[in-house]
C-alpha cells in the first residue's frame, strides 16, 4: 500500500496535533531531544508540509510548519512520565513507515493511539526485573550469595512499592527520599540480624533508583547542542541523586540518635 501525499484528504490541524502527539510520547518515554525534534519534522514532511520547525525540551514542545501556503503552529506542555524504551522503538518505526508514504494520516493516528495505550510489562515481571538486577549488582560489588538474596528481596519490595505509589503521582523528590529510606531501613535491619553486609545490600538495591536515563540523556543532549534540554536533565539527575542520598542519610542519622 502506498499513500499519495499529493492528495490531501486530511485536516492540517490534525496533522499538527498528531505530530506533537508523537513528540509527546517520545519525550515522556525518555527519548533524546534531537530524536523528538527530528521525528516531528519527518512526520510533518511525510504529509506534505514545507518549512518545518520543531523545538523540544523535556517540558515543552513547539512545532510550526507551512502547508498549502498556510502557517500552522502547535504548542504542548509535556509532563514527565515513566521511562518506556519500547514506545520509542515503536514510534521510531512508525515515523519511518510514514516517511516512506506507506500510511494515510488516519492509519497513522490509529497506530499512534495503539502505541500510546500500550501497557508496560505486567507487575510480576517488573518485580522479577528488580530481583535479577539487584542479584547481579550484589555479586558485581563483591557480595556473597547471602547478600545477593537479601538485596533481591529489598529490591522486590522497593519495586512493588514504586509501582503501587505510581498512580498517586508523588513529586519525584519525595518518592526517591521515601524509597531510599525504606531500602536503608531494611538493609540495617538485615545487617543487625547478622544476615548480610549492610553496605552491599544498600548499594545493590539503591542502584535501582539511580537516575541513569537522565544522566545519559543529559550528556547526549548537551553533545548534540540541545543545551537547554541538557541542563534540564542534568538538574533532574542531580536532584534525584540528592534525594536518594538524603533518604539514606536521614535514616542513618535518626537511628544513630543524631537528629
Amino acid at each position: 500500500m502506498c499513500y499519495n501525499p499529493v492528495v490531501k484528504d486530511f485536516d492540517p490541524n490534525s496533522l499538527a496535533r498528531l505530530a506533537t502527539k508523537a513528540g509527546i510520547i517520545l519525550m515522556r518515554s525518555g527519548a533524546e531531544t534531537y530524536r523528538v525534534e527530528e521525528t516531528m519534522n519527518y512526520i510533518l514532511k511525510a504529509y506534505g508540509a514545507k518549512v518545518t520547525d520543531s523545538y523540544a525540551t523535556p517540558t515543552l514542545l513547539i512545532t510550526s510548519f507551512t502547508l498549502d501556503e498556510q502557517l500552522y503552529h502547535n504548542i504542548k506542555r509535556v509532563k514527565m512520565a515513566d521511562v518506556d524504551l519500547d514506545k520509542i522503538v515503536k514510534v521510531n518505526d512508525l515515523s519511518r513507515l510514514a516517511y516512506r508514504h506507506q500510511l494515510s494520516l488516519k492509519d497513522f493516528e490509529k497506530e499512534l493511539n495503539k502505541i500510546e495505550s500500550e501497557k508496560p510489562y505486567p507487575f510480576y515481571i517488573e518485580i522479577l526485573g528488580a530481583l535479577v538486577c539487584a542479584f547481579g549488582f550484589a555479586f558485581f560489588f563483591g557480595g556473597t550469595l547471602n547478600d545477593a538474596l537479601l538485596s533481591s528481596l529489598v529490591a522486590m519490595v522497593i519495586e512493588a512499592l514504586a509501582i503501587y505509589i505510581r498512580p498517586l503521582a508523588f513529586p519525584h523528590f519525595f518518592k526517591y527520599v521515601f524509597l531510599s529510606m525504606i531500602i536503608t531501613l531494611m538493609a540495617i535491619a538485615f545487617a543487625n540480624l547478622g544476615l548480610g553486609r549492610q553496605d552491599i545490600i544498600i548499594i545493590s538495591s539503591l542502584m535501582l533508583l539511580v537516575p541513569g536515563l537522565a544522566i545519559t540523556n543529559a550528556i547526549r543532549d548537551t553533545v548534540s547542542g540541545d543545551l537547554v534540554a541538557g541542563l534540564v536533565r542534568a538538574s533532574e539527575a542531580l536532584i534525584n541523586a540528592a534525594a536518594i542520598a538524603l533518604g539514606s542519610l536521614l535514616v542513618m542519622l535518626i537511628l544513630r540518635g543524631g537528629l
Binding site: V83, G136, F137
Partner: peptide
C-alpha cells in the same frame, strides 16, 4: 564470576525500562 553479573543488572534494568524482545 562476578564479571558477567552486569548482564543480569542490565537485564533487570531493561525489564524495568520496558525493552522488549531481542532488544
Amino acid at each position: 564470576m562476578s564479571v558477567g553479573m552486569t548482564f543480569f543488572a542490565a537485564l533487570g534494568f531493561g525489564i524495568i525500562f520496558n525493552i522488549r524482545g531481542r532488544n
